[in-house]
Each structure stands twice: as structure tokens, then as C-alpha cells.
Simulated scan of single mutants.
Amino acid sequence: MSGDRPSPASGAPLADTFGRTHRDLRISLTDRCSLRCTYCMPADGVPWLAKDTLLTTDELVRVARVAVEAGVDSIRLTGGEPLLRPDVVDVVARLSALSGPAGAPELSLTTNALRLPELAVPLREAGLERVNISLDTLRADRFLSLTRRDRLDDTLDGIAAALAAGLAPVKINTVAMRGVNDDEIVDLARFAAERGLHLRFIEQMPLDAGHTWRREEMVTADEILAVLRAEWTLTELDGRGAAPAQTWLLDDGPASVGVIASVTRPFCGDCDRLRLTADGQVRACLFAREETDLRAVLRSGGSDAEIDAAIRRCLLGKKAGHDIDDPSFLQPTRPMSAIGG
């Protein structure tokens, strides 16, 4: 079947059984990465997804089109490292041409920034609006220890390239880790404030490949805020909506810092995100252990209506929350690099 006809459900919101409407689609372009962050991937021996299981560009754009026509108005490209996909600029250009009830979707990308010096301008011209860049330390020796790669200068060059290309805002994602980089909280906040970057500290989540996460080793939102309050007056901003980060002004602004407290201050009740993995599985929650196979629908000649229906079936199974604090919680079998952020 051609799949060009609108689905019968076009116009109906992508809702779950708790009344949450889903407008944010995260698309993983690859599970591969150019770094080996200790909290995400092992140093070697990573079982990469087989090439023939990865969605083609035509396939992932088709899924995105169906989702946009159903009300998705924000798409973020993730990985692994999405800039490792050879046709990433073409992917952005094709996604930026989509249109739904709210018009064209906002396009963003999460990256380690290593390829941004060469790609920031082409991506911006293709329709990318903003980037989230991972940066956990400003110390070269610590960057090498954390990522197993000596690439801090390349990351900083990538941040500068994103700013120069007019990608805005440029957000910095920092995973706060006890005894690892928690002594850099103020330094990182000052670094971001001086450059007009939007820094977000993230509580470490149970999504590592080795399943070694321990809550007691995680730096909590309260601890992060206590460190910041010793340096600045913090004013909490209202209007968070479905955004994962709660934001505070530093000394009345304009600089601000966000905290994503997925573990200690879960925001599941306002979640509007769904995820498409690089191998075509749709997930209703970052911590879900269940997936819905869209690749099979696509490659069996399924229609747009069947793609739409599969996405909605997945959302019907979405839980009220991730239950990390529940003794029965089980970490997803896939690591973050294979899920997409």
C-alpha cells in the first residue's frame, strides 16, 4: 500500500490513558557514538545494531510525517551520536519540510558536538533550530577519564560553532556525578552564563549499559541547588509546562540554570514525549521495557493508518510514571545509547 492517504485518526491527539497528549518525538539516528562515556557505554565490546535493522531515511521520515500529522510539533534527533549518520543534513532538511496542524515541527538535536565545527552551518541552513550539547567537565584530564577520549577541545570548538551558526538556544547537558564532577557545578554554571549557554544539570539515571547505577551515588537536585545557592540567588521560573527541566535565574538573570530531576522530582504527569529507536521501535517512556515494532509495519507494506495505529497502541500501554523508586523497578534492557535521549 502506498501509505500516502491520511490515517483515519488524523487530527486526533496522540493521547495515552492518563490524558497526556504527546507532541514531542525523539528520533534516534544511530546507536553508535564517538565517545564512550562511563555512565552510558562500556569501553569496548558494544553490540551495535545490525545495519539492516536500522530505519532508512525514507522510513524514519515517513514515521515522522505520520506523527506530525497527528499533532507532534517538536522533533529532536538523538543517538548514540546523531552526527555520525552520514546523511544527517538531508534528514534535517526532509523533516523541516513536514507540516501538521501546528505547521512545521521545531527541530533540535542532542550531540557531543565533535562534528559541529563542520556541520553547524549546513544543519542550520537545512532547518535545525537548536542543539543540546553534552558537557560534563571543563577539565581535560577528567574529560578523558569520563569519555575515554581526549576530545575536550573539540567539544568546546563544537559549542562555539553552534553559537556562531545561530543555533539558539544552545543548551548544555551536564550529568552530575558524586565524587566525579560535583566539584565543578559552579564552574560549569559560570562557564555557561558567560557565553549565553543554557545549562541543565541532570540527575544520573539508571540507563547505563553495565546496569551499575546506584541511587546513593547520584547527585540529587537538592544537592545541586544547594551548591548553586551558595554562589547565586536563585529565582525559580514558572511556566515549565511539559519541559523536563525546572529553571532558576541566577541573581535575577539573564543567566539561568535548569535541573532535570528525573529521579527525585519526576515530571511524568506532564510528559508529552515518545521515542523512535534507530531500529524502528517506538517507546512511550525512556524507562519502558516494552516497545512497539514499527519497522515490521513499514517493511510489510503497512499503510499510514497502520503506522498511526501502532503508535497509538504503544501509548495506550504507557504507565503513569517510571517507578524508579519502586522496589520492583527494573532497568530497561537497552542502554541509553540504543534508546535515544
Rank of each mutant, 00 (worst) to 15 (best):
S2G: 15
G3R: 12
P8L: 14
S10K: 15
A15W: 01
T17E: 13
T17F: 06
F18A: 12
L35K: 08
Y39L: 08
P42C: 01
P42E: 03
P47A: 09
L55W: 05
R62C: 08
V68P: 02
V72C: 08
D73T: 09
S74N: 09
V92F: 01
A93G: 13
L95K: 01
S99Y: 05
G100F: 12
G103T: 07
P105F: 09
L107R: 02
N112V: 11
L116H: 01
E118P: 07
L119V: 07
G127C: 13
G127L: 14
L128Y: 04
R130G: 06
V131Q: 04
I133F: 02
I133E: 02
S134V: 10
L138R: 03
A140E: 13
R142H: 06
F143Y: 13
L144N: 02
S145Q: 15
L152P: 00
D154G: 15
T155D: 10
G158V: 09
D183R: 02
A192F: 01
R195T: 05
P206H: 06
P206I: 04
L207G: 04
L207Y: 07
T212V: 14
M218D: 04
D222H: 09
D222A: 14
W232V: 14
G239F: 04
G241K: 05
T247H: 13
T247A: 12
V257P: 08
G258C: 12
A261V: 07
V263D: 03
R265M: 09
D270S: 14
L274S: 12
L276S: 06
A278F: 03
Q281P: 09
L286S: 01
R289Q: 13
E291C: 03
T292P: 07
T292M: 11
D304P: 11
D304V: 08
R312E: 10
G317Q: 10
I324K: 08
F329K: 14
F329L: 13
Q331Y: 04
S337N: 12
G340S: 09
